[in-house]
Design a protein around this nucleic acid. Structure first.
Lengths: 237, 237
DNA sequence: CAGTGGTCTAGACCACAAG
DNA sequence: TTGTGGTCTAGACCACTGG
């Protein structure tokens, strides 16, 4: 009964994954330890190697295992949990909560970007950028302040877009496909101006998202979103 | 040349995925539109159905496609980008930046949790919980303040653990496997006490992570991490 | 060099849900 | 009912990389 052979077969990849997780959690497979290779496991568990592969690959993506050709598969030394956040349009985020979305364009025009924006741009030094500021509202109350720079070289159509009707957030998502980007989350203390825009006391701690997106090696847009006090972003593990 | 037939074969799932992405971005496949089924695509592209399946399944996970049995595969109406965040131990996060990690236990003891903690616990009403507060430091400077509640019913061993030597953050990760959890990110204004602990002016905006983890239907622990001013968490898309 | 994971294939059956 | 994606299999070859 305590033998390693002939377990009741588990021929779904989910079952194999569960079994592997069980062995990790029960310390039958210890952190850093080499586990049996795919061929052995498939034989032991009574399924095809591809099934084992799917299960272990999945666990590796989730951070539980480290896999390398020839070196084999090991239990991850430091379990790094991965949380996935859904980044959607602000309009959807608000409407998804059952609130009414509205939007106000605050300013729009060509400007020379400040140093921090220019650094990230990596483009020619003294080029002007389209600078747009706007306010997103939920049930007529301030929700998020959008401060955006758009590279007119990468997106010339943006120069003639009507950002009164549609926020740059949405316009860009629909009109400009992008390949990659970076996101940063942080907090900041509300300045006098931000406090006025978001209708909160100055000095309040506000949640901030900075995002840059690029395509074909060019930076398309950079944006800072500053959210109203009390905003929080959450996800499951 | 402009025919749909006989493209140069693409028999890797990555190539199929790129081709599908190209068609989405070029609007050859429009948002909401039904795309050909796996059998047709595999024939058109000259590869096995399993290869197409792998590619499209991947794109669906990434949020570009919506797939349903019998209903077929459609281009997602609202491209929801998914950002994955790595949640690791604070020690690793600091050492990964090349800084020296240190840790200070501030308090530890059984207490009746406040209302907000009790609500999430979903357990018996008047049960005491292990309450621990601690400070994580990078190069001897305050990095994050940890305010944690541990359910002694779920983790009795925690009552005798030495949290002077090892932070509860690490101890739990090593000793208690968990199944699920929820994470929330937000910002808060530094209180007088928090300002003193983190050595910053009161009123500063601080980045906050709230996390709850459970296993076998029981809440194991709840924690709030408050980070020093200037902290930011970032990831790639 | 040789062992391991990574992938592709052709075929098969199944589960789900739209009509 | 029936079309679609979801998965499993057995076998094969490839790519990377440790020893």
């Amino acid at each position: 009964m305590s033998d390693t052979a002939a377990r009741s077969d588990m021929n779904s990849w989910q079952a194999v994954q569960e079994e592997a997780l069980r062995r990790i959690r029960s310390r039958q497979w210890r952190p850093g330890e080499l586990i049996p290779n795919e061929a052995e496991l498939s034989q032991e568990l009574g399924c095809a190697r591809a099934t084992v592969n799917r299960a272990l690959r999945n666990l590796a993506e989730a951070g539980f295992l480290d896999r390398r050709r020839k070196a084999g598969t090991r239990v991850a030394l430091h379990p790094v949990r991965k949380a996935t956040l859904d980044i959607s349009m602000i309009r959807q985020e608000i409407e998804g909560k059952g609130q009414a979305y509205s939007y106000l364009l605050l300013s729009s025009g060509l400007e020379s970007p400040p140093l921090d924006v220019r650094v990230r741009l990596q483009g020619p030094a003294d080029q002007q950028q389209l600078h747009i500021t706007a306010l997103h509202m939920a049930d007529r109350r301030p929700y998020a302040y959008e401060d955006r720079w758009i590279n007119p070289q990468a997106v010339p159509e943006a120069m003639t877009a009507d950002f009164e009707a549609q926020s740059p957030n949405e316009w860009l998502l629909v009109h400009v496909p992008f390949e990659g980007g970076s996101i940063a989350f942080s907090a900041k203390t509300a300045s006098q101006m931000e406090a006025e825009i978001l209708a909160c006391p100055p000095g309040e701690g506000l949640f901030v998202i900075d995002r840059a997106t690029w395509s074909k090696g060019q930076v398309i847009t950079q944006v800072r979103l500053i959210f109203h006090p009390g905003y929080h972003m959450h996800t499951e593990l």
